[in-house]
Design a protein around this nucleic acid. Structure first.
Lengths: 194, 194, 194, 194
DNA sequence: CATGAATGAGAATTCATTCAT
DNA sequence: TATGAATGAATTCTCATTCAT
């Protein structure tokens, strides 16, 4: 007997998930260009053809991985409760950002590379901007609360620091004194380092 | 009668220059991997074969581009006189760094991209390290003089800020509030903003 | 619905066969180096890409051609019964060898060419050695039985004669007095020529 | 003042010689295909262009090397005086042949490879045939004198033995019991082995 | 929905040959 | 006569994508 539409939907969702779960670490570790569709398919345990049932092309897979991650990471940012002080939330935010970079270095690397490329597909640019503005929306009130004059600029500025530290970490690896950098960063915002 | 060695040298230098001039913006705009030898050749108005007459392989072209630019930019740092105060030198250094990034975005972009590439080449890593340590040697005494506890870390930290700002500028272009960022940066080091 | 695994296997086997069937005469007529993958593909009526779907690289194709032919020709040597006299077996062996060369000149040509190639591959050398030692194991007892002092050297020596005759036949073709050569060979081992 | 025609001629002959002297060991060691014109030029200490002043193309160089060698080796065959016995001349001829193979293995390899290729240039085939018939003319009277029924076939036959031994030597290198093979060969012609 | 065989457009690199001087 | 810069076709190999089933 044929599968019910529900079954089909769930099967489809499952294989889609398998593909994205396979693609993320591959993109992350080896970069977008050096990850082949064949590798993704093999790693996901599906056929190459199936990937093209779910996605139009390789860039599309990247975008989906992107969005997937966005959802997850937006949850990451939801962690702080409404009742926490701005001070505590900034502290948490710094820790989370750094932790994310440390835990997903290759993904961050990819993000930066994409941000630097002039010719990335339109849609990707939009997605990257979306991430940025997302973060902005989240952080602006925080710096407002903390009494900064130009909270928007302040967010960009702390973002630059995050990016710079990420860059250092990515290029120097174990040699990078991440701890020191983070403490230095916190001290600039009068956050007690533990 | 054959061309004189001088003629040959000048002809060769000319085509070599054409190749490097074509390769640089391509590498920086699209990245090393996405730039093909065919594209470089076409852009330079020479044949693919000629590139291999000048360079052993693609990586070699990159290295040559690199060295070429290093030469051009190395003088930038030779600017400050011995008698200037640490305060003034830091101010100058910040201004020069920012100005350089603004004036040579492609070059900075390429530098960052290369710093992010894991595999490109050993030889390049040496070149990049050379730049870094060069800068370090220059800046450490400065922060020592300014009384910082851990001048080496401080150099890395301000370097991260530079990098982060550069990254922002490169991805947001005209939308980036560079002025604000620089002022913010200077204020953190108690430098009067003009 | 997808093809069944059986269908796929048969389709794959078919195209694999087409490739090997195209590669064999090309390799033997023009040699390994002068046979390009493009030529093989065209001759086989498939795309270049497909060859790489079946084989990792050009050498791999050669090895497959090799193994393919080995299988076909290995039975040739299984012919003589245990009860035949050494004299008769030697006679048979000579006839079979010559007949094989005559019937499979391309294959013999390829074999000789490969034996002459220094570098082609390690793996192939193993294959070629396997053939040689196979033949040795078969012939040494024969010459032992015939009372030769140094049967191993004798095998090498008659092998050289086979090779030399094959070489003559391959380069002179119909002009080569094969009959005469064989009779001359047999007379040296006191075998009556019919 | 301009060079005299004689000077020009001698200079030309000199550079021609340099090219051939460079080309022979290269062809010999690495084979025809794997020897590039650039390598020959560098080794000869001349420009690539000059080679094309002397020869139409790469095959032409090979042919010239060939002819050059022929001349030299024809002298080799002139060594035996008129007054030597057929027995001594055969002995000498065997020794010389083997010695030549031993001393110029790569050249012999090249010769065999060329003989096996179907598509070598016409002119080369002629040259190879010339070598063969040369040898034939030299050896036929010898075997006539020794009382063989069919001296022409006999020459082909001993030639096959030479070729076979050469093949063995080329593929087994130091492992080949050349001494034994030669002694075996000589014994077949009732030549005392020293 | 799913498969993987097949394609074809490039990618880097090599090299015989030409040509301006 | 002599140079070596320059060309362009060919080579091996990769990979996103298509398609018959």
């Amino acid at each position: 007997m044929p599968r019910t539409p529900e079954q089909n939907k769930s099967i489809k969702a499952q294989s889609r998930k398998a593909i994205l779960d396979a693609a993320f670490p591959l993109f992350s570790k080896h970069g977008f260009d050096k990850t082949s569709m064949a590798t993704i398919a093999k790693e996901a345990g599906v056929s190459k053809g199936l990937i093209y049932h779910h996605f139009d092309n390789k860039v599309d897979v990247l975008i989906a991985v992107f969005d997937n991650l966005m959802e997850q990471s937006s949850e990451v940012w939801d962690v702080f409760g409404e009742d926490e002080s701005a001070h505590d939330r900034l502290l948490k935010m710094i820790d989370i950002s750094i932790l994310f970079t440390k835990g997903n270095p290759e993904w961050v690397r990819l993000l930066i590379q994409l941000a630097l490329q002039e010719d990335v597909v339109e849609s990707l640019h939009d997605h990257i901007s979306a991430i940025r503005s997302n973060k902005l929306q989240l952080m602006i009130p925080l710096f407002e609360e903390l009494g900064y004059d130009d909270p928007e600029a302040e967010v960009l500025y702390i973002g630059a620091k995050f990016d710079g530290i990420a860059l250092g970490l990515l290029s120097m690896k174990e040699d990078y004194p991440l701890e020191k950098m983070v403490n230095r960063l916190k001290s600039e915002y009068n956050l007690k380092t533990q």
